[in-house]
Design a protein around this nucleic acid. Sequence first.
DNA 1: GAGGGGAGCGCG
DNA 2: AAAGCGCGCTCCCCTC
Length: 330
Amino acid sequence: MIKKTPKGQPSTAEPILQELAQEHELPRLIMEHRTLSKLKSTYTDKLPEMIQKTGRIHTSYHQAITATGRLSSTDPNLQNIPIRSTEGRRIRQAFVAPKGYKLVAADYSQVELRIMAHLSQDPGLLDAFTKDADVHKATAAEVFDVSLEDVTTEQRRRAKAINFGLIYGMSAFGLAKQLGIGRPEAGKYIKRYFERYPGVQQYMENTRESAKEKGYVETIYGRRLYLPDIKAKNAMMRQAAERTAINAPMQGSAADIIKRAMINMHDWLAETDLDVKMIMQVHDELIFEVAEKDLDAAQKKIVDIMQNSSQIDVPLLVEAGVGGNWDEAH
DNA sequence: GAGGGGAGCGCG
DNA sequence: AAAGCGCGCTCCCCTC
């Protein structure tokens, strides 16, 4: 079965090749070539050319580009440095601390799901985060109706896909495709989820309604995203706007939270005697360069500022790692 | 030679 | 008919 692009050409998109790879050797080789040539052309070849007089690569951050309030990063984009593949990680390993220094990477744990708990006030979700439970595991136990101890790796993986899917406004169709299961089964999972977390379902419905009524959605700190297409006659346009309406308060509130932390971080950095610099932001993560002698004190303060710059109805948890390079710091 | 747009793919 | 949010960069093809 050859899938076509909108222009009628045979599609060579990744998921299609994945399927074709079951039967043929070539698609796998094409995928492998794409991965490696992407890494080479975008990172391995380019980044060394971008080293400045300082001996460093300096990105530009833009504060007024994204619809949700995130920063964006260009020339080079340091918010898409590889991490998911082992070959890719070798590029991340090239980001190193100077002698006598270490990198500290501090990231918010599941911040968007925590915001979903806050916004929806769903008792089950609030409870999971308040108890600092493994939220994907807890979701698996609810959706698959097993005890926490009996959750399998596969069930946890599926629950994780459900949790992410919800943040993006995904349908049963999308979940089925994501998990490689049938649509009816995916529909069952979603139904179970909403039975167990009714506050979340209510929140989703309220958000769609409110977006239609007001023409915008907003973050917990009140930044708005206007959605003119929410009333579109074209169902595809309208549904896309509805998914944006669901996602934007969570993604946008997460952006607000890290921005507040960065402002407080700046104030602390201006007054502290510790040898520490804030050098990068990657959406839910801040990276610092810290003198080895100040590591413990700095790490503690960094986590403290990130966790306490905003208050929502569940704890904000920050996990910090230390390493000689950016990969190790994770 | 510059710039637009699509396909594809890197990240959260 | 489409079906998962938000970005930026490279490659390729096309137009001006």
